[in-house]
């Protein structure tokens, strides 16, 4: 996965970049399955690898697919990135180790969800009951964000001479 990400930095052909980002998403989905997050893996595979790739291909069809940039050596960005990365790694030294059951994240509301959601909400999948019931407001907010984004895309692409062609691209966001 990291190798794919590095390849993305170097590639000049945008078509290959988009395809690689799809592969990157699929690899992420596989990783989520390994980490027990099956629902997240579904969503990532369908939405991240599917819809996002289609959207990017649509954009490429409407624009160009070749990166025209002078091969310059950007020192400053590399420096900033290394510095930030070093700081972040320093920050991780205080984090609880991977898989540790005594990490603080597992001792707030999560045990209650695991114990009670079966009898209080019903579905055996805890993720479903938390998403739809306990944290329903989050989902409402999510729908609001998607609606706003869809409206924004339609406004941006709606007018102008190539409106019909673009509406097709915009329509895919609704899914």
């Amino acid at each position: 996965m990291t190798v794919t990400a590095f390849a993305l930095v170097r590639l000049r052909n945008l078509f290959a970049v988009v395809m690689l980002s799809g592969i990157f998403s699929l690899l992420a989905a596989v990783l989520y399955v390994v980490l027990d997050a099956v629902d997240v893996a579904f969503t990532e595979a369908a939405v991240g690898a599917g819809i996002a790739t289609v959207l990017m291909l649509g954009t490429l069809a409407l624009t160009t697919s070749v990166v025209k940039e002078a091969p310059q050596k950007p020192i400053a960005p590399l420096l900033i990135v290394s510095l930030t990365g070093a700081l972040l790694i320093f920050g991780t030294l205080d984090m609880p180790p991977y898989g540790d059951p005594s990490a603080p994240i597992h001792h707030h509301v999560a045990p209650r969800y695991i114990e009670k959601s079966g009898s209080e909400v019903g579905p055996p999948n805890i993720v479903t009951s938390v998403l739809a019931s306990y944290r329903g407001y989050d989902t409402l907010g999510e729908v609001t964000v998607i609606f706003t984004a869809a409206v924004g895309v339609l406004i941006l692409l709606g007018g102008g001479r190539r409106s019909r062609k673009k509406r097709r691209t915009a329509g895919k966001t609704g899914g």
């Binding site: 997240v40 996002a52 994240i105 993720v127 989050d138 895309v153 692409l157 915009a170």
Partner: peptide, 24 residues
């Protein structure tokens, strides 16, 4: 722990919405 899964489920979908807006 199911709670981060729920949050990330929401975040993925929102992420695609913002991607669509950026591409537009």
């Amino acid at each position: 722990n199911p709670l981060p899964h729920v949050l990330i489920l929401t975040a993925i979908v929102v992420g695609v919405a913002t991607t669509a807006l950026a591409l537009a």
